[in-house]
């Protein structure tokens, strides 16, 4: 039958179209991942061709019992991600509601919002180093003009991570806003009109009509942003350097894994950290996918 042969040629075609991309992604991801897992079970260290022996789960034990670098890095990663993503979601939602109805100049506002998203993170990091310079920066000048004592920002151990969080919020809130605006534009008008007729005020309409309908979009945006925030590297490394600063104050898991690999050639231990880190990210994604949509609704 003709439709049968069409089906078969369809199937052949779609695999021909897919195969190159799948092969590439597989070779560049699946193989390296397996390699990382294998490397994490060895004692690879130093020169890359030095050879290595399998030592079982020793590296995982070393990492998980390391209270000096590993666990603080875990908490910094969690702290940075939760703080940044929560702020970005709240501010992004507020901004999306502000921009929901078109206004004169919306084109320009959208353009301004895109720039932080497309700008080079390293350049952004350097820019904020200048703005937040404790003695010569404009930020402290502005604080002084409103009577607030100057801050150390990235120059201090305790203020570094909160400062980097705020920079992340500046850079990525627009992404939340754009994602949520896209979600808002797909919502039907009728439920809100009905709520207005029933006498609901703006807040009630937002809380009980818009927010539940927007739930799935918020959940998707949360997953996307959390994954990226967990893996933040460029801006941390560009502003604080290797190890996240002298007291490791900005050393997240990603920065730690990078340092172990490329500054200390601890390939095996770094691989164990990376496997744990990857499992952690997958866990976060699964939890968010399961609960975030429901929680927002």
């Amino acid at each position: 039958m003709q439709s049968h042969s069409v089906d078969r040629s369809h199937r052949r075609l779609r695999w021909m179209m897919l195969a190159p991309a799948l092969a590439f992604v597989g070779l560049m991801i699946v193989f390296p991942l397996l390699f990382t897992i294998d490397l994490s079970l060895t004692d690879a260290f130093g020169a890359v061709n030095a050879g290595a022996e399998h030592v079982g789960l020793q590296n995982y034990g070393d990492a998980l019992s390391d209270g000096r670098r590993f666990w603080p890095a875990v908490w910094r990663t969690v702290y940075f991600t939760v703080g940044a993503v929560v702020l970005e979601t709240v501010l992004g939602l507020a901004l999306a509601m502000l921009m929901r109805r078109a206004f004169r100049g919306i084109r320009w506002v959208r353009t301004v919002l895109i720039v932080p998203l497309l700008a080079t993170p390293v350049a952004i990091g350097i820019l904020w180093l200048l703005i937040l310079d404790p003695t010569n920066g404009i930020a402290n000048q502005l604080l002084k003009s409103v009577g607030i004592a100057p801050l150390e920002f990235l120059g201090s151990v305790s203020q570094s991570l909160p400062t980097l969080m705020v920079i992340d919020v500046w850079q990525w809130t627009p992404m939340m806003t754009l994602l949520l605006l896209a979600g808002l534009s797909t919502l039907p008008e009728e439920p809100e009109e009905a709520a207005t007729v029933d006498g609901a005020n703006a807040w009630q309409r937002f809380r009980h009509v818009v927010l539940p309908m927007l739930g799935p979009t918020i959940a998707t945006a949360l997953v996307l942003r959390s994954v990226d925030a967990l893996k933040t590297f460029d801006i941390l490394y560009a502003t604080k350097g290797p190890g996240g600063g002298s007291a490791f104050e900005a050393e997240t898991l990603n920065v730690l894994a990078y340092g172990l690999t490329f500054d200390y050639q601890e390939y095996a231990l770094a691989s164990a950290v990376l496997v744990l880190f990857t499992l952690f990210i997958i866990g976060v994604v699964l939890v968010l996918r399961r609960y975030a949509g429901r929680g927002a609704a």
């Binding site: 193989f31 390296p32 990382t36 590297f233 691989s271």
Partner: peptide, 9 residues
């Protein structure tokens, strides 16, 4: 997948 876990291999 964190890019570093690919970068190492």
């Amino acid at each position: 997948v964190p890019a570093i876990s690919l970068l190492v291999p």
